[in-house]
Structure formats: C-alpha cells, structure tokens
Design a protein around this nucleic acid. Structure first.
Length: 743
DNA sequence: GTAGGGTTAG
C-alpha cells in the first residue's frame, strides 16, 4: 500500500526538519554512480512524482548542491500543469538560506506567470531586504505581470529602481519598461523610452506597436510601422500580426493591402505561419472585404479555431449573420470566443432571441461562458426587456464567482434600466467601485428614459465632480433628461456648455434632442429656428421631433412642413403619413385626411407590422397586431374581451384617432383593440401573479388608445405595468403614467 | 537553473 501523502502542515514541518538535520555528505552529481535525480525531471508530470524526485535529491545528499537545487526549483516554478506547483516552489525556496539572484528571479517569474503581481512585487521587496541585487532578468519577469492598476501606481518607482541598479541600458529591461508604460496607459512615456532605446531589430518596435494597439491607438501603430520601413528595420511575423490587427480595427483596407503585399514580396524571409495567415484573413474580414477573406479561407492549408472565428465574425459584421451561423455550425471545434462571437453577432443584428437560443445551446456543451459572453447576453436582455433571463445571468455569474468587471457592471446597469428596474440599476451603480464614463452614462440614460429627469441631471453634475469626462452619448442622456422633464433652460445651457466647456461638437442627434426639448415646451418657432440654423442636414428624427410637437400643439402648418421634409428623406415612412392624417383629423380637416389616405394608397404605403415583446418565465413572447399565432391565442383574446368589458364599465371609450387611415370606420375600433401592446399586456395579466410587475417592450411609439387602456388597467387590476416604447418608458400605476401623457 | 514582441469577442 502506498504511504499516504503528508498534509500541507506536516510537509512544511518535514522540510524544516530536513533543513536543520545534519547534512548527508555533500556530493555533486559527478560523484554519483547513477544519473542525478533531476535528470528525471523532464518526465515528471504530477506533484507526487515531483516529491519522489525531491526525496531522491535529499537521500543522495544533493540537497545542498546549488546547481541541483536550482534545477529543481526552476522546474517547479514553470510546471503550470501541476496543481500546487507554485506553493511547492515557495516551500523549496524558503528552505534556501541565501538564494542567488537567479533563484529570486525564478520565484518572481513564477508569481508573474501566475498573474499574481502583488506576490511578485513582495518577492522583489524581500529580495532587496535580503541584500540580493536585481539583475537584467529581474525587471522583465516582474513587470510582465503588471495590470493596469499596478503599473499606474508602481510603474515609475520600478523604473527608478531599474535606473538605480544600473540596468536601464539593457534591451530586455527597456522593452519591459515600454511594455509596462503602455499597460498603464502612458503610451507617451513609453514612446519617450522607445525613442531613446536601441531599435536595431524588430523587437522594440513590436513592443511599441502592440502597446499602441493595447491602448486602441491604432493610427499610431500604423504610423510607427511606416517609420520602421523608413528606418529600414526588417519587420518580422510579430510586427506584421500587430500592424494587420491595427488595420482591421481601423478598417483601413488600403494600408492592410499594402502590408499584405509586403509579406508576399518579402523574398521568403517571412513565411506566413498559422497566426500570420489568421491575421491576414482577419484584416480583410475586419475591413468588410469578405470576398478576399473568404478566398483566402478556402485556399488555406490548415484552419484553426481563430481562422474560423474570424470569418464568422466577418460575415456577421457585414450583416450576413445567417451565413455566419452556417459556418459556425460547420466549425470542427468551437471555443468560448467563437460561441461569444456568434452570440454577439446576433445581438448586433438585433436578433436577440436567436442570441438567447444559441446561449442555451452553448450550455449543453462543456464550454463555460466568460464575462464577454455575459456582456453580450445582458445586451440581448436589455434590448428584449428580458428581465428574468437578465437576473438569471447575474445569478449565474455570482454562483460561478465570475469576474465582475466594470464592463459587466455597465451591462447590468443597462439591462436593468432598459427593463424598467431602476432600483436594481442604481443598486449595481452604487456597488461598483470602479466606474468609467460608460457606467455614468448608462445610469444617466437609464434615469432619463425612465422619467427621472432631475435625478439624471444631478448624477450628471456628480459625474463632472468626479472628474469623469462625459462624451457625446452622455450628453444625449442629459439632454433627453431635460426634454422628458421639461427643463428647457437647463437643456439650452447644457447644449451650449457641451461646446464651450467640454469641447464636444453637437451631432445631428444632439440637435434632435434640442428640437424635441423646445417642441415639447411649445416653443415651436424656436424649434424650427434651431433646425434652420443647424450646421448639418437635419435627418428624419429631427423633423420627427418637430412633427410630434406640432401634433400636441395642433400647429397644422408646422406639421405639414415637418411631414413633407420627412417624406422627402424617407418616402416609405408609413408612421409619418399616419401622424399627419391624425393632425388633420384633430383639426377637423377631413379633406386633407382623405388626401393623405389617397396619397398612401397611390404610393403603396402600408403599415409595417410593429411588434411587442413580453418575457414570461424566461421565455420571450412576441406579438404583432391581430396576432392569432400564439399557442394560447384563445385565452389571450378571451382575456382581452373581459378587459374590454370591465374597462368600459370603468368609463373607457376607445380612441381611434391614431388608427391607420386605410381601413373603414366601423373596423377601426376592433383594429385598435388588437394592437400588439394590448395583446402582450393581456398575456402578461394572464401569466403574472398578483403583485408582479407586467413588463412589455414595444418597437413602436405607443398609440393613444393603448396608453389609455393600460392606464385604466393599472388602476382596475392594481398592477404596476411597465411599457418600454421606442424611446422611453411608461410606468403605469394607479391609473397614471410616468410620462405625464407626453410622449 | 533565468530574458523581449503577436491573432479571434464587449
């Protein structure tokens, strides 16, 4: 029977005892009759075998032979596949009375490769305390592990140490320092070191180019590659891979082509290996040149998971998401990146249900989703308003102790606020200890679309106080907060401060917010003036804001102007005809109503079927107006009729003013009563227990009648009903709506 | 017994 292995504690004691025991006669390997135990190391696969070799070393009296000891320690430090290798290395190391610099370096490297910069640093400090001097190897090992945070806080100090110990002229140390500064985000400092460094071969150039890539400074990466050409330094495979990656990110096909030609005309010096071939395909795919990428893919000798993923992503990015899926299904091997890329491809094409389905398929495999997967999934949930799935994902991450990075936190805030759960969104926001501009922006937008304009603006001030620089999206959030809450003056000031204080030039969307803000406040003339003074061509959103305001304030002239401009830009915009005819109807201009109706018939304009979504028990249900396809359709229409009867008793009168003018008067009432929003709400009332919030997402602007019905239903059934429409939330409670009847 | 650079996804 094999002896039981000693416990950790016993092991430490044994090792201590051994080190204090009288030594066996000191030998060196040449005095042995058989090969030294360390010659067995290349075949060592488990911690048990490692311990056997170690005991042989002790038994043969080689334990104090520096070379044998070093061989064992070095082996131990690098065996990442053996669990516990690092702790065992540390135990060995701690038994050595005066370790030489190389042994300290080995330990520092081991911690560094284990992604434990704190341990690597503390090893370095112990090294200094024991009067060992760092050498040329020390800093490359140490600095390699630095995260952004560590590099930003300790980087300068270690740079100073390197100088103090006279190591700063060594190429390896210089490269390590450049790498470290680019990790910390200080590419300018990195560049200064680069300028002074030795640039005879490609390595330092590679460090600098990849440093720029790391900080998304792709232009600089390409420019530096150009300088390298001028200086006649031969790029190698690594250089090509980095610069092609930069081209892909920039979508710079011309420069990418140039690099590809350089590789081909390299006179055989660079024979593209798998990684370089992947980088070439990925460059073409990234630039959207799928014909070339596909040709290269087809003629490629061997394809790995990266090759496949690159073309899958490429097709998804040019909108051919079904072709991407076809390839994905054919992949011989898929890893977490390929799954996530495909899921994300669906999300970006707004095929969120497909994304959810694919995630379920992924869970049938052994491949674990990571934080990237979760961000894509949370985005899908946000777009669908799928709160239950979103919450499940949050729980999944907690159960599996997954990394809660800032990006994940941001996605959670976005998911919660787009599901109308502001409290949960704010809870995540409060708990996040590192907030970036996206965190603040997500929360500001969340507050704004949920009707908390004042809180959104307060948070915007807090953001400025925290010295986080807002970007153009933050201003969209802040401006729409003003607009939704009627803060006209604040909005105007904000718009000006955007240019004067923050140096951000407003784009067409910002002007849209401004027009909306003025229009909602009834300042139609000012709104029109704003449009005519815009430095760019107004788009249909801008005119749409004016049209909406004209409807509320019954300004026929302005409405006609706005509608004409929209139809000029988008002749097939059915909603615009409807809105215009509604305005005519409200002003009793029936001839005009008929004229618009005829115009639509002549031009063959039909109403695009808008749909509404509701998530029940983790499943997303989709409805279009008059939908009979749902498996519980009969129940839904029964519920709808029951609602109708009860609401009529409570005083409800149907409002058919916004019905598409292509149907006869007597059918209008039933048409309006089968709107997808109502079907979804009825389904929600059928399936959600008393006290549960009913949450519906609709892709359109909610109509007056639906708004009335849901308001009454919230009172009649004592329910909180949340409807997210195209631009904002309606929180219906006790017969009232958070939008204050302006949307 | 120890050194440097790279590809796929938010």
């Amino acid at each position: 029977m094999p002896l039981p292995l000693p416990s950790k504690k016993a092991e430490t004691l044994i090792l201590k005892l051994i080190s204090t025991m009288p030594c066996p006669p000191l030998l060196n390997p040449s005095q042995l009759h058989s090969p030294p135990p360390t010659s067995l190391l290349p075949n060592c696969r488990t911690i048990k075998e490692l311990k056997q070799i170690h005991s042989q070393i002790i038994r043969t009296g080689l334990a104090n032979c520096p070379a044998e000891r070093a061989r064992l320690l070095s082996f131990c430090c690098t065996q990442h596949s053996i669990p516990g290798h690092l702790n065992y290395a540390r135990l060995l190391f701690d038994q050595i009375p005066h370790p030489e610099p190389a042994l300290w370096n080995s330990m520092i490297r081991a911690y560094s490769e284990h992604d434990s910069p704190a341990d690597a640093v503390s090893m370095y400090i112990r090294m200094l305390a024991s009067h060992s001097k760092p050498n040329n190897y020390t800093f490359p090992f140490l600095l390699k592990s630095f995260t952004r945070h560590v590099a930003a806080n300790l980087g300068d100090g270690f740079h100073a140490h390197a100088i103090k110990f006279g190591l700063s002229s060594n190429h390896h140390v210089q490269n390590a320092l450049i790498h470290m500064y680019s990790v910390s985000g200080e590419t300018d400092t990195a560049r200064q070191l680069f300028q002074r460094g030795w640039k005879g071969d490609a390595v330092m150039w590679n460090v600098m180019i990849s440093g720029y890539n790391r900080r998304k400074q792709y232009d600089e990466a390409c420019t530096l590659f150009g300088e390298m050409e001028k200086e006649n330094v031969d790029p190698n495979e690594v250089t090509f891979i980095s610069v092609l990656s930069a081209c892909a990110k920039l979508k710079d096909l011309e420069f990418g082509n140039h690099v590809h030609h350089m590789i081909e005309e390299d006179g055989g010096k660079t024979i593209p290996n798998q990684k370089l071939q992947n980088a070439i395909i990925q460059m073409y795919a990234g630039c959207g040149a799928m014909d070339i990428a596909w040709r290269l893919f087809e003629t490629m000798g061997s394809r790995d998971v990266v090759t496949w993923t690159s073309v899958v992503v490429g097709f998804a990015n040019v909108g051919q998401v079904d072709r991407a899926r076809g390839l994905f299904d054919k992949m011989p091997k898929r890893d977490v990146v390929s799954w996530t890329a495909m899921i994300d491809g669906y999300v970006r094409m707004n095929r969120n249900k497909d994304a959810l389905d694919l995630f379920r398929k992924m869970q049938e495999t052994k491949i674990q989703p990571d934080d990237f997967t979760m961000v894509s999934m949370l985005t899908a949930c946000a777009q669908l308003g799928a709160l239950e799935v979103g919450e499940w994902i949050r729980g999944y991450m907690e159960r599996n102790r997954m990394k809660m990075s800032t990006v994940v936190g941001n996605a959670l805030i976005d998911m919660y606020s787009k599901c109308g759960c502001l409290e949960s969104a704010r809870d995540i926001f409060r708990k996040m200890n590192s907030k970036d501009k996206f965190t603040w922006t997500a929360m500001i937008v969340g507050l704004a679309i949920n009707g908390h304009g004042e809180k959104a603006l307060n948070l915007f001030s807090e953001m400025l106080q925290a010295s986080v620089r807002p970007d153009e999206i933050t201003f969209i959030g802040a401006l729409s907060a003003c607009s939704h809450s009627g803060f006209v003056e604040e909005g105007r000031e904000l718009f000006l401060s955007m240019i004067t204080t923050h140096g951000i030039m407003p784009n067409v969307a910002h002007y849209g917010c401004l027009v909306d803000l003025l229009g909602r406040a009834g300042q139609l003339k000012e709104a029109l003036e704003t449009i005519s003074n815009m430095p760019m061509r107004p788009n249909s959103t801008v005119w749409g804001a004016l049209l909406g305001a004209s409807r509320v304030y019954r300004n026929v002239e302005m409405a006609e102007l706005a509608a004409c401009c929209i139809l000029e830009l988008e002749p097939g915009n059915g909603a615009c005809y409807v809105l215009l005819s509604n305005i005519y109807a409200k002003c009793n201009k029936w001839d005009e109503v008929q004229r618009v109706r005829k115009m639509m018939m002549d031009r063959g304009i039909t109403k695009q079927p808008g749909c509404s979504l509701i998530e029940v028990h983790g499943e997303v249900h989709e409805f279009v107006a008059g939908d009979r396809s749902h498996r519980r359709s009969d129940d839904i229409y029964f519920k709808l009729e029951e609602m109708g009867r009860e609401l009529k008793l409570a005083g409800y009168v149907s409002d058919t003013s916004e019905v598409f003018p292509d149907i006869e008067e007597e059918q209008k009432e039933s048409a309006v009563y089968q709107h997808s929003e109502k079907l979804a709400v009825a389904f929600g009332l059928l399936n959600c227990k008393a006290g549960e919030t009913v949450r519906v997402v609709t892709k359109m602007r909610i109509c007056n009648d639906c708004h009335n019905v849901i308001k009454l239903a919230s009172e009649l059934y004592g329910r909180h009903i949340v409807v997210r429409d195209r631009t904002r939330f309606h929180h219906f409670r006790d017969g009232d709506c958070s939008c204050k009847n302006y949307w």
